[in-house]
């Protein structure tokens, strides 16, 4: 097990290198010239040259890439090009809101969808099952953008059930006041696909031979469901949750934009807009690392759920 983890961690190095290469090429090619933002309304060649020198843009591409390597190795991405604040402090301020928002959406959605999915799978083929599937499918067909615009307009503005937007400093205040509506909308968007996916996982497990064997042995249905089906079906469920965890960071862009929540998604858009390469680099590298770590964790969790799984 330990050797396995070591091997997987070592395998991350070429991937990170690839991510760096991709990012470097993409943004040196298309990222835009930040000196034109910093120089302002009126500028001259000297000012531009000075700015470029300060940002290190006058160095060779190779030297710039070496700096990038050093930044990744030390996980210190220096200061933002747009507002000259340390990248680490910018991201630190953004992580909290992002994780709070998407974490809650995910928590509520996962709990609801797994419990509903197991119930629906239990009565698969019934009218209830078909109705739930139909409702979910229809709900999924509406764009997230529509839910957000309409939800904010009617639920918050017209009906006044929620504040229109906002974000406070205290967790409790956010939880009680500002989070409910964005979380509700986020859950509406993600519940239906989750429910459908988990239902299919459960149904697939229930079609397996061992379920029939268990039934033949005279085990009660709830027991089969909980003991056998759930455990096996948890593997794809865990994978899907694990794989989506890193995206918690940037996933709720639309919600952040409409509800003025200071999350990571808006930071990405802002950084790209202002050609703020240090911030872009930091976010991408952190997410890449998180993605790989969660992939590894998912594999380890498999093993814990089902000892028969071979780690290779």
């Amino acid at each position: 097990m330990f050797a396995y983890i070591i091997r997987r961690v070592l395998q991350m190095i070429p991937t990170i290198f690839g991510v760096m290469l991709l990012l470097f090429i993409l943004f040196n090619w298309v990222g835009g010239d930040p000196s034109y933002i910093l120089a302002g309304k009126s500028m001259n060649a000297t000012t531009l040259a000075n700015i470029r020198a300060q940002l290190g843009l006058d160095k060779s591409q190779f030297a710039q890439f070496l700096i990038f390597v050093k930044q990744v190795a030390t996980l210190n991405f220096g200061i933002s090009w747009s507002n000259q604040q340390p990248v680490s402090s910018i991201l630190a301020a953004r992580v909290g809101p992002s994780v709070t928002l998407t974490g809650f959406i995910m928590l509520v959605s996962t709990v609801l969808s797994i419990s509903m999915a197991s119930l629906v799978a239990y009565v698969r083929g019934s009218l209830t099952d078909r109705m739930v599937t139909l409702i979910c499918t229809t709900a999924m067909s509406v764009s997230a953008l529509v839910y957000i615009i309409a939800g904010q307009f009617w639920l918050a503005h017209k009906l006044g059930w929620f504040p229109v937007l906002g974000w406070g400093d205290s967790f409790a205040k956010n939880l009680v006041t500002y989070l409910p509506l964005p979380v509700l909308l986020g859950v509406i968007v993600s519940l239906a696909p989750d429910l459908r996916f988990y239902r299919s996982c459960f149904v697939e497990e229930m079609n397996h031979d061992y379920v029939r064997t268990a039934r033949a042995k005279g085990l009660s249905e709830p027991k089969i469901m909980l003991k056998h089906v759930m455990r096996n079906a948890l593997i794809p469920v865990v994978t899907s949750i694990m794989m989506s965890l890193p995206y918690l960071l940037v996933g709720a862009l639309l919600l952040e934009t409409f509800f003025a929540i200071p999350g990571m998604g808006r930071e990405v858009i802002m950084a790209v807009d202002k050609s703020d390469f240090p911030v872009i680099k930091a976010i991408t590298i952190y997410i890449a690392i998180l993605t790989m770590i969660f992939n590894l964790l998912a594999d380890i969790v498999y093993k814990l759920i089902d000892p028969r799984v071979q780690l290779k």
């Binding site: 070429p14 991937t15 990170i16 690839g18 991510v19 290469l21 991709l22 990012l23 993409l26 943004f27 090619w29 298309v30 990222g31 835009g32 995206y247 960071l249 940037v250 862009l253 998604g265 990405v268 858009i269 790209v272 872009i280 976010i283 991408t284 997410i287 890449a288 993605t291 790989m292």
Partner: peptide, 22 residues
């Protein structure tokens, strides 16, 4: 596989913004 893991490790949104820019 290396290519695959690189692409899956970069957030879609960044790829999107980058590709759209060119």
């Amino acid at each position: 596989m290396w290519f695959y893991s690189v692409f899956t490790s970069v957030p879609d949104m960044l790829l999107l913004l980058a590709f759209s820019a060119v």
